[in-house]
Design a protein around this nucleic acid. Structure first.
Lengths: 244, 244
DNA sequence: AATCTTTGTGTCCTCGTGACACTATTAGAA
DNA sequence: TTCTAATAGTGTCACGAGGACACAAAGATT
């Protein structure tokens, strides 16, 4: 970090003074962990143990360690809580209003992440009040976490229409009906079945597995999976547009 | 900040320990200030005075003060440098890679901002190497500022198609040709004049001023301004879409 | 066999938008 | 005064994306 070089800087004293004391803050990441199950979007929350937010639902976060970058911190938090690595994450926004945290100045960087609930395995965090909550049931949360949740969900809603990230929330094999219901749950609107399928056919990023659902008291549905190869092929060509 | 309440928290000691020392970092904002002039997008840059980036072009930023929020800090920086208040700003991304700053751990939150160059008045910063640079001439910059610039410009390119923010870069009165050239400069593509105008007509957010340009050796062009009232009226109805 | 439940499919029509060329208007030169 | 140079301003056609819409197919259960 070169203190010898640092001494040459003209206004270095100002910088050093400022860097030393009161201008510093703690840095955390907070993860908005989205899952999908039972036709609704869920958020993984924990019970807050910090006054004055004791008992409220809280996002899962941690302080960023020295020598750790933000994405890495978010991935670490996710793995600690869900046991999953390589989860799809997205930085959302930085929140740093003075007074947002009872212990002082804590800047937090919000991330959303998408996980397949089927792959999620409760870790030893489960006795700390970890709980999937329906997104619409969360009205008040600890700290400014409701604001963070809202910002994250808005960004997810925007991104899901232009990037094929919805699949991260589904099992590897899914039916077209499940995919449509997922999009309806995220966006809060409903689609025409035929139009939705036509659109997907035209995008051509699904792999027809020639397998069918079993054990239902009705006609079985075909299973599909997201085809990374096909997607790579088409995504380069023009602006990928999922708009439907 | 309630230290009496704080003492009740179960894991408060862990938190306090962590908050005290090494997990803290300095926090800054960096402003990517976009202007438009002469058919190209410009960035306001300053000359870096900090080794090992001495002399390189640098974004304009400052440490966030205690009791200041991020948006406020960005606005303050902008006013200090340009003399302008109430500028359109947009948080872009937080950057915190360890090693990104020679003086130690400095998390920076990037903002882009759009200003009308005509309204810009050089402040006493002008003798500090303040300079408008063509966006395409900036290949290397101090710190990770090139990465920050790229992220900001990408976000601007996305936002400009779905939100009527381009007008922030133009004088209050402008011709349709100027508007088209601005969009072409931002997006790096060219539009058909008739199609561009048809699209704008259909969106209906411009006010026809019934004034004309003067002093040109050719047919005068009609002047328009952005009509906030019209925009408010249409923006509520459906997803505003500037896609052209 | 009849019923129930969910899957899966095709057509029409409208609207947005890409492609495309000529006239209108002014200043200035001849 | 006329001519030239330069930019402003305008309409049509054709294609394709996508919204609206209804019924047959397949399996399980009774």
């Amino acid at each position: 970090m070169g203190t010898e070089a640092v001494k040459q800087a003209k206004n270095i004293n100002i910088w050093l003074d400022q860097l030393n004391e009161e201008s510093k803050a703690a840095i955390s990441v907070d993860c908005v962990i989205f899952g999908y199950d039972d036709e609704s979007i869920k958020i993984l929350t924990i019970e807050s143990d910090m006054p004055p937010h004791l008992g409220k639902r809280s996002l899962i976060g941690d302080l960023v360690k020295k020598d750790e970058n933000l994405d890495g911190a978010a991935q670490r938090v996710l793995e600690t809580v869900t046991g999953l690595k390589g989860v799809h994450i997205q930085q959302v926004h930085a929140f740093a209003d003075p007074g947002r945290h009872p212990l002082g100045r804590v800047l937090t960087v919000a991330y959303y992440s998408l996980i397949k609930i089927e792959e999620y395995t409760l870790t030893d965090f489960k006795d700390k009040g970890l709980k999937w909550m329906d997104i619409h049931s969360l009205q008040k949360m600890a700290f400014d976490h409701k604001e963070i949740l809202d910002a994250s969900f808005s960004l997810l809603q925007r991104n899901v229409r232009t990037r094929p990230i919805g699949f991260e929330l589904l099992p590897k094999k899914f039916t077209l009906q499940e995919l449509q219901s997922l999009y309806e749950a995220i966006l809060g609107i409903s689609f025409d079945k035929r139009n939705f399928r036509r659109k997907l056919r035209s995008i051509d990023i699904l792999l027809d597995l020639d397998e069918f659902t079993e054990g239902n008291a009705h006609r079985p549905a075909k299973l599909y999976s997201f085809d990374h190869k096909k997607f790579k092929a088409v995504s380069g060509k023009k602006e990928f547009n999922f708009q439907i």
